[in-house]
Computed example of a mutant assay.
Amino acid sequence: MKILAYPITILYFFCFGLTLVVFHPIQWFCFNVFGYKVHKISVDWLQFFLMRCLNILGTRFSFKNSYSIPPNRPIITVANHQSMYDIPPLIWYLRKHHVKFVSKKELGKGIPSVSYNLRHGGSVLINRKEPLKSIKAIENFAIRIAKNNWAAVIFPEGTRSRNGKPKPFKTKGLITMFEFAPNAVILPVSINNSWKTLRYGKFPMGLGAHITFNFHKPIELNQFEDKETLIKDIEATITKTIIL
């Protein structure tokens, strides 16, 4: 299987890179000529085609959701993090809710399409080496999410798991989000098998991963006063359905 992965990965990288390069000027045109709404549509379709690129590797996606996600409400999506390939399916599945990310500032430069969207699409870029400025940026981000009824995605582990085993949640960013978007709905999500796309490292890519997104029952944030306990409960909900 690993031998077969080499030529397939080369094909994947070509299609993946071409997709990013093609959508970069499309995003620029949509944003600068038509504004946010049309730009968002271009970003949504970028995710669709990135998922199709992953299909080249035999990657499949499943979304398990037994609950309705409230419309026209700010949403704080809390998920474990296994690879960059967690992101396109989340944006595509939640596209009606205008998905935005808390991301490290390094991703804001040098990556066609991705960096442009992070800088102009409503997400927030933070510098982990400057915690005070990062918290202030997250405050402003939470206010923006609440004002526009968008969906924020935050990975509280802080970095991806390389083997699927969840890392302990860091609470400061979440508590800040909770404080400045108090009317939000919390959407816990368990992600499985995304790490298998990188089981061999960056090259070759892993083949045949079945990435699943398990959406848990939405939580009304304003019904909970003890935010630390709430985060522990969310972490337990997410981790209990992670397959190791």
Rank of each mutant, 00 (worst) to 15 (best):
M1I: 14
M1S: 12
M1C: 07
L4W: 12
I8P: 05
F14V: 14
F16R: 05
T19I: 11
T19D: 09
L20N: 07
V22Y: 14
H24R: 11
Q27H: 15
Q27K: 10
W28T: 11
F29A: 04
N32F: 12
N32C: 09
N32A: 07
G35K: 09
Y36F: 14
V38A: 13
K40D: 11
I41A: 00
S42Q: 00
L46T: 14
F49E: 06
I56E: 07
L57K: 04
G58L: 06
S62E: 15
S62Q: 12
K64W: 08
Y67Q: 03
S68F: 05
N72T: 02
I75K: 06
I75V: 05
T77L: 15
N80D: 11
H81T: 03
H81W: 10
I87N: 10
P89K: 03
W92I: 07
Y93V: 07
R95P: 09
K100I: 04
V102F: 07
S103R: 04
K104R: 13
G110M: 08
I111E: 05
P112C: 00
S113V: 00
V114M: 14
Y116H: 07
Y116E: 01
L118M: 10
R119F: 00
G121E: 12
G122Y: 06
G122A: 10
G122E: 07
S123D: 15
S123G: 04
L125I: 02
N127V: 03
N127P: 02
E130I: 01
L132S: 14
K133W: 02
K136P: 00
I138S: 02
I143C: 07
I145V: 15
A146D: 09
K147V: 13
A152H: 09
P156T: 04
E157A: 02
E157P: 03
R162N: 13
R162E: 11
N163R: 03
G164N: 06
G164W: 15
P166M: 08
P166S: 01
P168F: 09
P168G: 05
K170R: 13
K172A: 10
G173R: 03
N183S: 14
V185D: 11
P188D: 06
N193Y: 14
W195N: 06
L198S: 12
R199Y: 03
R199K: 15
R199N: 00
K202G: 06
M205V: 01
M205L: 15
T212A: 13
N214I: 15
H216C: 00
P218M: 13
I219G: 08
I219Q: 05
E220N: 14
E225R: 15
E228P: 01
L230N: 12
L230K: 03
D233Y: 10
I234P: 08
A236V: 01
I242L: 05
I242Q: 08
L244Q: 13
